[in-house]
């Protein structure tokens, strides 16, 4: 999103308005690790999975949310003054930050509008396909020059199937390469109708063991794996992504099972290893949510290489970091 859209559009917060709209929480330009070339990444809000290591907690809920970035707060107290719901109050002790009562908050956006320091933000905006196209078109020459395009990510982009389909169709119609980054957790008929407009699929395999998968993400992996097999039969190029979480899914047996599964597919461009990182941890604080994966350290480069050596030896096309 450009500066103005990111910061200054306070008028339509939380308002679906008329017509088909998608709830997005970010647009990132010059994305270079998600599907080839220079891309624009569109992040749709809401996700059916609850992965313990999720680095985008603000992407999970299917509604706009309010965040508070402590470091940016200059303590001017304007938010306390303008909140019509009385949902913001000063912390008890001196020097303490403000506290947002999320039960009372109506997401009217007044606090964010008056927070000049940008400490309070509303995450999530409803946009129409034409609005989105305006942003996407601005970087068209970069896509053409670099072999890039547009990637829909999330959250889970397929969780807003009608909007996603309409956006993808429009982008493809204009000759721009399309990709989606998805969990592949959705009914096949809906998935198939989306895939008609997709040039490249980036999809995760988080764990091969169903029980473990449920424990880690809250859902079964059966539908996910079935869907990935079906995409293979359609012949759409796929990059499989494996978030590598130390002690969680990086055992020899799970990596081997993942490799065996991937080897049965016919359309895989690469297996991308995404090493766990804790950059998302601070975002949990900003949302007043506790971080579910406490105590897990980011793996070292050596650890990652040691873990995936066997995968490389099998002859798989591995990339680290997407």
């Amino acid at each position: 999103m450009n500066w103005r859209e990111k910061v200054l559009d306070f008028d339509n917060i939380g308002d679906r308005g008329e017509g088909l709209k998608g709830l997005i929480f970010d647009v990132q330009k010059f994305a270079i690790h998600d599907g080839g070339g220079i891309r624009t990444n569109v992040f749709l809000k809401g996700c059916p999975l609850q992965c313990l290591w999720c680095s985008n907690p603000e992407s999970l809920a299917y509604k706009p949310e309010i965040t508070f970035v402590t470091n940016n707060c200059i303590g001017c107290g304007k938010c306390l003054e303008v909140c019509p719901a009385g949902a913001i109050h000063q912390g008890e002790t001196a020097g303490e930050d403000i506290i947002i009562d999320r039960e009372r908050c109506t997401l009217c956006g007044q606090c964010a509008k008056h927070c000049y320091a940008g400490a309070i933000n509303i995450i999530g905006r409803y946009v129409s396909v034409p609005d989105l196209m305006q942003i996407i078109e601005r970087d068209r020459k970069f896509y053409e020059q670099s072999g890039g395009g547009v990637t829909f990510s999330g959250g889970e982009p397929t969780a807003q199937p009608e909007f996603l389909k309409a956006a993808l169709a429009e982008i493809q119609k204009r000759g721009i390469h399309t990709a989606i980054e998805t969990s592949s957790l959705l009914p096949w008929d809906v998935y198939a109708s989306i895939l008609e407009h997709v040039d490249l699929v980036l999809t995760d395999i988080k764990h091969m063991d169903d029980a473990e998968h449920k424990r880690l993400t809250g859902v079964s992996n059966q539908l996910i794996l079935d869907n990935i097999r079906k995409i293979s039969r359609l012949g759409i190029p796929v990059k499989i992504r494996l978030p590598l979480i130390p002690g969680i899914n990086d055992s020899d047996s799970n990596l081997e099972a993942t490799a065996e599964f991937v080897e049965q597919l016919s359309n895989v461009q690469s297996l991308d290893i995404l090493p766990y990182h804790r950059l998302g941890e601070m975002k949990y604080r900003q949302l007043d949510i506790s971080y579910p994966l406490k105590g897990v350290e980011s793996p070292t480069v050596e650890h990652v290489e040691e873990r995936i050596r066997a995968l490389r030896e099998r002859g798989l096309n591995i990339s680290v970091g997407g």
């Binding site: 010059f30 270079i32 080839g36 070339g37 220079i38 970069f142 670099s146």
Partner: peptide
């Protein structure tokens, strides 16, 4: 790919 991206930014 990184070099290509640098060129793409320059060229655009």
């Amino acid at each position: 790919e990184g070099l290509r991206n640098l060129i793409a930014v320059t060229e655009t």
